[in-house]
Amino acid sequence: MSRTLISKSVTASGLATLLAVSLVSASPAQAAEQLRIAEQFGITYLLLHVARDQGLIEKHGAERGVDIDVEWLQLSGGAAVNDALLSNSIDIAGAGVGPLLTVWDRTHGNLNVKGIASLGEFPNFLITNNPDIQTLEDIDDNDRIAVPAVGVSVQSRFLQKAVADTFGQDQFDRLEGNTVALPHPDATAALISGGTEINTHFSSIPFQYQALQQEGIHKITDSYEILGGPVSPTVLYATEDFRNENPDIYAAFLDALDEARSVIEEDPREAANIYKRVTGTQLDIDFLESIITDEQVSFSLVPNNTFPLVEFLFDVGAIQNEPTSWQDYFFEDIHAWEGS
């Protein structure tokens, strides 16, 4: 058979197949769905670190038939996180329950920002390198208190609650002028060095324990004492539109968090190694594991003891919309949980 006949034979018999293949090849590949998550500093965000290190969001997305491309952003302070969420620069915010309540109140009836889940229960310590400060009454005009975001961060809200309990509710913002916005790592370094105006820090894990290892630094009070028990200080939240428009991504994210929780509970030492890998911290593995397994620390997704802080913020006029329960500022996906 001649070369011409072979060519004609293939062209005639395979035209439909070749055309189909060319059409498939010309079709663009399905683009991955982007998920932008903002986190901050510390073991408080360990659930996210584990999910990131183990590719759990991508895994659970694939199980639901969704290719998820996760972008991780690190910010400092609830104000910056809220600005990023409201400007549509991120999809999921990781910040204190204080910033959540601020943005929930601000977007009530429009964007309807609400909580997704808790990142766990962790005590926040108010610590100082000033030996003259033993109680809040000892703080004077010359003292400076580092918080992630002045007046907005959960540490600022804890401080306001403590001040109101000490001096009266009408003076809840009495120490506002003493506070300075500073990321936890920088505030810890300032406190340890003693060479700056910062002599007090409303801290978080692991930074508060790192600082307390240094001679001359002591605790004044903590969030568990202020709220009367363990509290979930840090949460994840998003807009109602994001949740409604991305049900599979949202569900995959919740599944990933739950698996990350299991990883931490089943192998806390590996969780400590993950924290070290993701953050690049130089802290000792044994030290990190001791924090993860501390009896005061839990990586439960269930919000706990947040409502007393909400009631306080409404009473002092920090928020204008009065919730009737914790379920008002968390999405209904977790309403069956025994939160508070």
Rank of each mutant, 00 (worst) to 15 (best):
V235N: 04
T239L: 01
V10K: 09
T221P: 15
D105M: 06
S9W: 06
A252F: 05
E311F: 15
Y209L: 12
Q30W: 01
T135Q: 13
S300H: 05
V263I: 13
N304A: 05
Q40Y: 01
E71R: 00
V263F: 11
Q54W: 09
G96A: 05
I92A: 01
A190S: 15
W72F: 06
P131S: 07
T11H: 15
E33V: 00
Q320K: 08
V97E: 04
N112A: 07
S76R: 14
L86S: 11
K8G: 09
D138V: 08
A51L: 05
L86C: 14
G55I: 01
A146K: 03
F242W: 10
E121V: 08
N244W: 01
Q40N: 12
P303M: 09
A20Q: 08
V163E: 05
N305P: 04
I264M: 05
S204A: 12
I37A: 00
P233Y: 10
D69E: 12
V150G: 01
L19C: 11
G98L: 12
E245C: 03
I192K: 08
L175N: 09
A62F: 11
L18P: 05
S232R: 00
T281G: 11
P99W: 08
Q320E: 10
E322K: 09
L46S: 03
L46K: 04
Y275S: 09
G115K: 10
L175Q: 10
R174I: 04
P206K: 01
V113K: 11
V154Y: 04
W326P: 03
I68S: 00
A29Q: 08
E265T: 09
G115S: 06
G280N: 01
G151Y: 06
I264D: 13
V180P: 02
Q30K: 07
I334F: 04
D143P: 13
I198N: 01
T221S: 13
H335T: 14
F253Q: 00
F167D: 12
D53F: 15
R157V: 11
Q134I: 12
P183R: 03
Q213N: 15
S87W: 15
F207D: 08
F330D: 02
Q282G: 07
A117C: 05
E121I: 13
I217H: 03
V150E: 02
S76P: 10
V66F: 00
Q134V: 12
V235L: 15
W326F: 14
V10D: 02
S153P: 02
P148H: 10
P206N: 02
S290I: 04
A32E: 00
D333Y: 13
T11F: 05
S27Y: 12
G216T: 06
L313Y: 06
I6Q: 03
D186G: 09
D132I: 14
E270A: 14
Q327N: 06
A38C: 08
R52W: 07
R261N: 10
E121R: 12
A336N: 08
F125K: 15
Q214R: 11
A93I: 07
D315N: 08
I319D: 02
G120E: 04
L257G: 06
L48D: 11
T128V: 13
F207P: 13
V310D: 14
A190T: 00
D91E: 08
P308Y: 05
A336P: 13
T324F: 06
E121T: 13
H201A: 07
G120I: 14
A260C: 07
A84C: 13
S298Y: 01
F242I: 04
S203C: 13
P206G: 03
G94K: 03
Y237Q: 03
E266S: 12
F314G: 12
P99L: 10
